[in-house]
Write a protein that binds this DNA or RNA. Structure first.
Lengths: 228, 228
DNA sequence: GTACTTGTTTGAAAATATATTACAAAAAGG
DNA sequence: CCTTTTTGTAATATATTTTCAAACAAGTAC
């Protein structure tokens, strides 16, 4: 079930849209001003955000801009009647679609469906599309499988490479040993979890510089993480 | 078993719906007008209220509005087809879903199930789905497991972290020692309840500032709580 | 005030988690 | 085949955490 955040200060409209969306089976949340709306959008992972342009405390444009610094949650901007300028700058600030008030609920529903579909397709494509991954001065070129620390090329074995890639594709997410095990060794692997530790050590030997803190942090009792 | 209140003046329809709901295993009660319906809804704790829009003595909109002043019992509004205009124009009545008469009983059942599920999920999820949790100037980022008091990062062990998270996901709820034990140490843990006290102390040492009141309050004879 | 209950603090032992190492088995590359 | 490299295991060492229990402090009831 898709989750939709409604940021709208006109309570009646917010309530009405919420009801309609729930009726359609979406999971919704309403925030009545820009500040709490932005907070909710950052704290939580919504599939779509319906964002009013005119908001108290923090206007819609500003909410979109600040959200975009951290996240790519798709935004449908709700603007007052035909202000073309708003439209243009709305897109500039990271809206993915817009709808002009007053609108028929059916049109909104159609736009949400279209956006969800579009995002879905983009996501599928994008995952396999990123060509390189970076963490500080470490880079991985996926096509060539070349790993560099600064200018220096680092030779990794297959397992080492995949373990590092997994960690680097999840910067700031603590990954438990068994998660790493299924991601790198496969869901049906029957190796001891200790191999993860051993490979972390191999990686640390190859990528870290003596005296400096390791790029790969241990979170005792939980797993490993590369912290930005 | 879920309890459902049916507020509907057409006796045949009310009777039919009641029968079907009982057949599905719900516990039901019927009220035939708005006044007694509202009274019943206030007096008793139902899981869902089926509310007809057109009612004698007090119409559905008014029932919903007055109920909402006191309670958040989920409401499914039953509207006639031609009152669709009502919902579009300014309605602020506090329904959680609606169904248009005449409806197939299966649709009603599906909407009740969906609503019950939604409520359930909302209750749990608001806690566990968020990426971060906040209490005053304390924040927890769940992915990275980083805990901050203001700008300062606080290092917690696994147990400390889970205990704090549990307390912060239940702000203003007093949690008994044995509840904390099952939530943090697991339902089959066999440690003394005193370890909870010990860990509360560790947490206080790490998160409180000298001279200030502790963020974690003791409720003598009961347990601990973080009060907002 | 005294007895009693409940919560706090402590230090040390026990349990656990992680790091490190050496080595054998398996795979890859000639 | 033989050599080299990679992979996984197991044992040991080290570091950290968890737990317990006892002493102490603070409330509560009489």
């Amino acid at each position: 079930m898709s989750r939709i955040l409604i940021i709208e200060d006109e309570k009646n409209l917010a309530r009405f849209v919420e009801l309609e969306l729930k009726h359609e089976g979406y999971d919704t949340q309403v925030e009545l001003n820009g500040r709490t709306g932005l907070q909710a959008a950052l704290d939580d992972n919504f599939d779509v955000i319906l964002l009013d342009l005119m908001l108290p405390e923090l206007n819609g444009m500003e909410v979109a801009r600040r959200l975009r610094e951290k996240k790519n949650t798709p935004i449908i901007m709700m603007t007052a009647r035909d202000s073309v300028i708003d439209r243009v700058s709305g897109f500039d600030h990271g809206a993915d679609d817009y709808i002009v008030k007053p609108f028929a609920i059916e049109e909104l529903l159609a736009r949400i469906r279209a956006l969800l579909r579009r995002i879905q397709i983009e996501n599928d494509q994008q995952k396999s599309n990123k060509k390189s991954v970076t963490f500080k001065d470490l880079t991985i070129e996926k096509d060539s499988r070349i790993v560099r620390r600064g200018d220096e090329v680092i030779n990794l074995t297959k397992r080492e490479y995949e373990l590092l890639l997994t960690l680097m594709e999840n910067v700031d997410v603590v990954l438990a040993r068994d998660v790493l095990l299924t991601k790198v060794w496969g869901y049906d692997s029957e190796v001891e979890t200790n191999v993860v530790d051993v490979y972390i050590r191999y990686l640390r030997n190859k990528i870290d510089r003596p005296g400096e803190n390791s790029y790969i942090q241990t979170v005792r009792g939980t797993g490993y993480v590369m912290r930005s």
